[in-house]
């Protein structure tokens, strides 16, 4: 484990930001810290980056209690992006790298490398304020990873990036993971990181509601439901005690799309065999709940009764 949080608690004057959160983040993984706005993600990150301290509980970095000397092992891209506007890109990167313990010469070598990789070498002598927003984002990302941190924390990393740059960023993140870094993603847009994350933790109302490897969680939330698409000249209707039709959509020219839940002890091949006899099948896949769905389900489950009632009334 590169990082462990044990029963971390943090309260501000008006509210509790973290209420006994425990996490374990494995080495060389991409970890998604997910939850709606105001759930406590940023509070947790600020504790991990040692900007603030926890009221109680403990953070361990590779088994050691988190201490100031670990700061050089961590790279942090906050949600609120910012750079010194009147400073040149190159100088700024050198400054930030030196603050994280890099020597001037090392910093310059690496900066050259990164600026080439991001194709912004010509901008090194420009003031930050003369750069476009996307460029500034790139510079900021470089600043985050320049000192080759073992743990990279990215808070809402894709906000403000256009699709091309967002893809570029994804590639870089995967490359960094390959090279041995661990990445924590924090976001409220769960679908944006689903495909990247190995592990996730869901945080809601200052508590962790769910965590574990993404595959395991999804399996856990599998409901044995399948989607079936095809065409039939006669009307296709599933009538079988093993299957339960959750949704049936009739489209043009005899096309249809069904969502079917299998009862216990029945497997997907049984359904497929049954369907092939009745219609021309175009697509067949398991309906796997998205992290977003899981989150909503989980939140409903963990909500106190009274709140659940109001939530239901609202929905």
């Amino acid at each position: 484990m590169i990082l462990e949080a044990i029963d971390v608690r943090k309260a501000y004057a008006a509210h509790v930001a973290l209420d006994g959160v425990s996490l374990a983040i494995p080495e060389q993984s991409i970890f998604g810290l997910l939850g709606p706005n105001g759930a406590g993600k940023t509070s947790l990150i600020r504790i991990i980056t040692q900007i603030t301290g926890a009221d109680s509980g403990e953070i361990r970095f590779r088994g050691q209690r988190l201490a100031p000397e670990h700061a050089t092992e961590v790279g942090y891209l906050p949600e609120e992006r910012g750079l010194y506007k009147k400073m040149k890109v190159g100088e700024q990167l050198i400054y930030l790298a030196r603050l994280r313990g890099l020597s001037r010469a090392d910093a310059m070598l690496r900066i050259k490398d990164w600026l080439e990789r991001f194709d912004i070498k010509a901008w090194a002598e420009k003031n930050v304020e003369d750069l476009s927003k996307g460029m500034q984002q790139k510079v900021q990302f470089i600043a985050t990873v320049l000192h080759e941190p073992k743990l990279i924390i990215l808070d809402e990393p894709f906000s403000g990036f256009d699709p091309i740059n967002a893809n570029m960023l994804k590639d870089e993140i995967l490359r960094l993971k390959q090279e041995g870094a661990t990445i924590i993603f924090s976001t409220h847009r769960m679908e944006s990181v689903e495909e990247l994350c190995d592990h996730i933790a869901l945080i809601n109302r200052s508590r962790k509601v769910l965590d574990g490897p993404v595959k395991l969680i999804r399996n856990q939330f599998r409901s044995n439901t399948y989607e079936l698409e095809g065409r039939s000249n006669n009307k296709f209707i599933v009538m079988h005690p093993d299957f339960e039709v959750l949704e049936h959509l009739e489209l043009e020219n005899g096309h249809f799309r069904d969502r079917i839940k299998l009862h216990d002890g029945v497997n997907s091949n049984d359904l497929l065999r049954y369907a092939i006899g009745q219609a021309e099948i175009h697509a067949f896949r398991e309906v796997i709940p998205s992290i977003n769905d899981i989150f909503i389900r989980r939140v409903r489950e963990t909500m106190p009764e009274s709140l659940l009632e109001t939530a239901n009334a609202l929905l």
């Binding site: 942090y76 906050p78 910012g82 750079l83 010194y84 603050l99």
Partner: peptide, 14 residues
Amino acid sequence: EEKSSRIMEVMLSS
């Protein structure tokens, strides 16, 4: 200025 440029969080992490 430093505050309004939002660089504080980056700085404070080191």
